[in-house]
Amino acid sequence: MTERIVQFGASEHLSGVLRNDPSVRGRPGLIFFNAGVVHRIGPHRLNVKLARALNAPSLRFDLSGQGESATAEAGLGFERQAVADLGAAIDTISDELDAPDTIAIGICSGADHAMRAAVADPRIRGLVLLDPFAYPNDTAAGADFMARAADPDRWSRKIRSMMARGESVQNSDNEEQTDDEIDQGRPVAPKEDFAADLTRLVERGVRILIVYTGLVRRHVSKPAHFFQTFADYGFDRTIEVDAMPHTDHTFSSIASQEALIARIDDWLQRNYRSARDERLS
């Protein structure tokens, strides 16, 4: 196996697994880390599956105070510490791997950390953001409403539930997702700030792939919804966006995991062909 344990960070308090192999030299280095409450292997071991399938050197690690990593001594707040931890991870990638570029891959709150780190650290040259912040879009909300209204399974569930509770139609809830469910309880950055950060990164040449799942289908269920929401910024020419509205937030089915791996692999192949790949083609 081409994986080994590394301890790194200012006080060697961060713990991770470095993956390297002669066959992947020259390809970009990938960084994986915690997704919300899940340790470095990711939900359903997704980070390990991605690291091994994407044929690139990588580091997957736990942020300070999570998983196998100890608490940091610095006393920074959680968000600033996460950015510092990602900086230490890039140092390790630079020292240990022959990787010309570094790409951070973050899920949910991990996407928020990855974006903040990329804004702060120009060594991050690529971002894969899985369910980053999403913002209301009338077209997406309308499509979601229509899809629900046309779904007989939902009506039968609703009627059964109402009968069980002895409620009338007027009193029943509309089963629509709440904002808190969509945001996963995390504070959402103002739309203008999110757009400004993306703009800054794009102008710096950072390549970005955003994938939205069904969690945010009331805001984005097609890439066009995202580009419409940010129509003033021209992201349709600079950022790749994909929507998987029939997939849940943590990619709980094997098929959705395989689809995600294929999607990221395709993006990497198109954007980061190594000099070695060029020679071989």
């Binding site: 359903h44 071991r45 399974d153 569930r157 089963e175 943590t250 709980s252 094997i254 995991q257």
Partner: peptide, 26 residues
């Protein structure tokens, strides 16, 4: 997770547990 009726998921899941090829993402 998908905010779908359980009946919908049941339709896509083998009736016999012995024929399940995946469970909870594994």
């Amino acid at each position: 997770a998908l905010d779908l009726p359980a009946s919908r998921i049941k339709r896509d899941t083998p009736k016999e547990p012995a024929k399940m090829t995946e469970a909870l993402g594994f």
